[in-house]
Write a protein that binds this DNA or RNA. Structure first.
Length: 803
DNA sequence: CGCACCACAATTTTT
DNA sequence: TTGTGGTGCG
């Protein structure tokens, strides 16, 4: 074989792969074709990182290391070169592949189920069924998968229970109360976060206690005791909290050579998404799994690290190159999401952070519109301004769902909701009460958990008297004490309640309860999950208790219980796994079920945190004021301030075409009125990329008079007297004839039904009409759009026309 | 044992 | 301003 042939062969092969991924830009392509060794992808917002991740996996499976390899098979022929030169095809891929990676040797880790789902489905699209074997999982579900096989080595059973945040919190509250620690000094959230950090630092209760003994803060010693007790109770209940899932997996890999080498050999490539959000444990997990081959590819953006409060350390990304020898770094700076003005605004803000990797987003999409700042006089007006902008867009045919409103705190959503309701704008608030957090759903799940794991005292306590069975708190406390003393699960005590004189008063009811549960448990061994569930809801008396009172509340609870059943059914259908444990695992790790996409066309409202990873044509960033964003706590703390700034960066880069930033001169928050300066982040936007809109919203005058107190804007006071702008003209401007609507006209709307026009205001070549509908109340609509859905009724109001 | 009332506090939250 | 958690009474 001649050198030139070898050379041509390798060239043809590389060219083939390049062509196969020809839709990628040069940096993306480089990332995809860099196959071996540690790789850091600094992926700016909107730079197509998921695309890169997916195609990198596709490349590994399809071509293996061909893109970087000098290997030429002995059997290579001119014909082979010709096939490869002809372009991507199955045959060409087969010829070109060098040591292709089997799908099951790839581990791709994400943070959210949503991201994992997206990864899986896009891989499926690209690779077909072969993609099923790729481990595309969240950190937690990957760990559960490992632990379900190996947990016995750590002294748990294979069917250990997973405690979610709420469970951890209730357990912690119980312990703090038991230990009689002052809740002012020891708020459960704080204690939990200390324990979480301890776990992140690989400190077990003993090591933590040693460190605490030397600490200045006397609270640490108490917390050490709490930590010990917390872990003890988790153990007793055969339960792991979210941190334990990862921590225990790391322990398993560290302490058991055979387990470690099994997984290190199994996975030839480890990919980690959203690397800027990883904590120390997650870093340890990923790097241990990648140990040996060091084929670890991490994707992230240090500028979007906004979860420090949850233990994420930006150091993982900043120190990647020094921790992994020979690491390569590739920057993805080309942005496909936003127009240039928006990106420059984002660049201008983030430039003020000192701890970051150099990066500058750019685009070829053109300048677009400048971000605009609107200064409102108060929070009502701010909210109304947002609503008006959205109405105006809607009138132009822009769907509601193209708009997102982002705020720093959930508490800010209220005013906006009022404004949207008033204006007839459909909206969805993202991230409120989650389905699985509802009491009735947790109750039903607790029943299932206790059936699966009778040692789960926490869940047992939740349901033992829900619905009321006459088992009082006092006797329960006694039972808990007995269980503690004898080191046995509470369930056992309840079963044998008759043996303990102090329990005699409710002994029979306790026994009855365990008999019920035992029967249900035996049912769970014979019947499918959905049948079991029905039995639980009925025989526990839970549904019956709800049916007793026909309140709105109870009706919705019954609905939710039904909703959980459909969750069960679809779980069985989708996974083919009807096991109770399988379902509970999925639920424990899948709190994110109410997703955004499923909704109808509606404006989206959420915190900036929840917006990460999403994009919207138009974004409103509200409450851009000192003290709110950046929040009060960040002022005077440079680290916190940088985190807030990253948050600002995230917010700005969500916008594709139009960014509105709003603030209020005065705002009432938590019952107190304050006036704040405009956010420093706004001032950090280079002036040439920001338009300041100092005129108040076109309706501010009317709004502040009529809107706040009145539920019906058709109130007489409005039309009477001194309002000069009451158009009675027929709207005529703009293209197309607009129908002849006037104030006081009776109308019939397709979806809102009959109503009366109460006001019309000219606006951008159109009219904003206010209609008081009989059934749905007042709505504000843009006439041009509404005219197609609304007809004028002939029977005019008595006087004909006003004025 | 359940409900009503009153203090109190209150970023952000992928699992 | 809103929601939550604890206490006291019927």
């Amino acid at each position: 074989m001649t050198e030139t042939f070898r050379h041509r062969y390798i060239q043809a092969r590389r060219e083939l792969i390049r062509r196969d991924f020809g839709f990628l830009n040069p940096e993306q392509l480089e990332a995809v074709m860099t196959v071996e060794g540690p790789l850091l992808l600094l992926a700016g917002a909107g730079s197509g990182k998921t695309t890169v991740l997916i195609n990198r996996i596709v490349n590994l499976i399809r071509y293996g290391s061909a893109a970087e390899s000098d290997y030429v098979p002995d059997t290579a022929t001119e014909e082979d070169i010709a096939v490869m030169q002809a372009g991507p095809s199955e045959e060409a891929a087969r010829l070109a592949a060098v040591d292709p990676v089997e799908p099951w040797r790839i581990l791709a880790i994400t943070f959210t189920n949503k991201a994992a789902d997206e990864l899986r489905s896009r891989l499926e699209q690209a690779l077909g069924p072969a993609s099923d074997d790729v481990w595309a999982q969240t950190f937690h579900s990957a760990c559960v998968r490992i632990l379900r096989r190996e947990a016995e080595r750590l002294g748990y059973s294979r069917s250990f229970t997973i405690y979610d945040t709420g469970d951890s919190q209730s357990l912690m509250k119980r312990i703090l109360k038991e230990k009689d620690l002052d809740e002012k000094m020891f708020p459960y959230r704080y204690v939990l976060s200390v324990i979480s950090s301890a776990k992140d630092a690989r400190q077990d209760p003993e090591t933590f206690a040693q460190a605490a003994a030397k600490a200045y803060d006397p609270r640490q010693k108490h917390i050490a005791g709490v930590y010990k007790e917390y872990q003890r109770q988790l153990r007793e209940a055969d339960a792991m909290d979210f941190d334990d899932l990862i921590s225990n997996t790391v322990t398993l890999l560290e302490d058991y050579e055979d387990v470690r080498s099994y997984y290190q050999r199994r996975f030839r490539h480890v990919l980690v998404d959203e690397y800027q959000d990883t904590n120390n444990l997650q870093y340890l997990l990923a790097s241990t799994l990648a140990g040996g081959h060091e084929n670890i590819c991490v994707v992230g953006d240090d500028d979007q690290s906004i979860y420090k409060f949850r233990g994420a350390t930006i150091r993982n990304i900043l120190e990647f190159e020094s921790r992994f020898q020979g690491a390569r770094t590739i920057r993805l700076e080309r942005n496909y999401r936003s127009t240039a003005h928006i990106l420059e605004a984002a660049n201008g803000v983030i430039r003020n952070n000192s701890k970051r990797k150099r990066k500058r987003l750019w685009t070829e999409q053109g300048d677009g519109e400048q971000p605009a700042l609107h200064i409102a006089s108060n929070e009502h007006e701010e909210a109304q301004f947002v609503a008006d902008c959205i109405l105006e867009d809607f009138a132009k045919g822009v769907p509601w769902g193209d708009h997102a409103v982002l705020y720093r705190m959930n508490a800010q959503s209220n005013q906006l909701e009022y404004a949207f309701k008033r204006s007839g704008i459909p909206y969805r608030v993202y991230g409120g009460m989650k389905f699985f957090d509802r009491a009735e759903v947790k109750d039903m799940l607790s029943y299932l958990c206790v059936l699966a794991n009778p040692a789960d005292d926490l869940r047992l306590l939740r349901i033992v008297n829900t619905p009321p069975r006459g088992i009082g708190a006092n006797s329960l406390e006694k039972a808990v004490a007995i269980a503690q003393e004898n080191g046995m699960p509470l369930y056992r005590v309840l079963q044998n309640a008759g043996d303990y004189p102090e329990l005699q008063r409710s002994a029979s009811r306790m026994r009855q309860f365990t008999i019920l549960m035992d029967e249900l448990r035996s049912l769970s061994e014979q019947e499918p999950l959905d049948t079991l569930y029905d039995a639980v809801t009925e025989r526990s008396g839970y549904l019956a208790a709800l049916r007793e009172k026909n309140t709105q509340e109870n009706i919705s609870r019954i609905e939710n219980i039904g909703e959980l059943k459909s969750n069960i059914l679809s779980f069985i259908k989708e996974t083919g796994d009807g096991s109770l444990h399988g379902f509970l695992d999925q639920v424990a790790l899948y709190t994110d079920l109410d997703n955004l996409e499923s909704g109808a066309d509606a404006v989206v409202m959420m915190t900036i945190h929840s917006a990460k990873g999403l994009e919207f044509p138009t974004v409103f960033l509200v409450g851009a004021e000192e003290g709110i964003f950046p929040g009060l706590r960040a002022v005077g703390d440079p680290e916190e301030m940088e985190e807030e700034r990253r948050l600002a960066y995230v917010a700005i880069t969500r916008a594709m075409r139009k960014l509105w930033i709003t603030c209020a001169r005065q705002r009432m928050l938590f019952g107190r009125t304050s006036s704040n300066r405009v956010s420093r982040f706004v001032e950090e936007i280079p002036p040439e990329h920001l338009r300041t809109d100092r005129t108040a919203s076109p309706f501010s005058g009317q709004r502040s008079e009529g809107a706040p107190q009145s539920r019906s804007p058709l109130s007489a006071s409005r039309s009477a007297g001194r309002e000069p702008i009451r158009p009675i003209l027929t709207p005529s401007s703009g293209q197309g004839p607009a129908p002849d609507f006037r104030v006081k006209d009776r109308v019939e709307h397709i979806s809102f039904g009959p109503g009366v026009i109460t006001a019309m205001t000219p606006m951008g070549g159109d009219f904003l009409v206010e209609v008081s509908f009989e059934k749905v109340g007042p709505k504000r609509l843009m006439l041009r759009a509404a005219a197609t859905k609304m007809t004028k009724q002939n029977d005019r109001d008595e006087s004909g026309d006003a004025t």
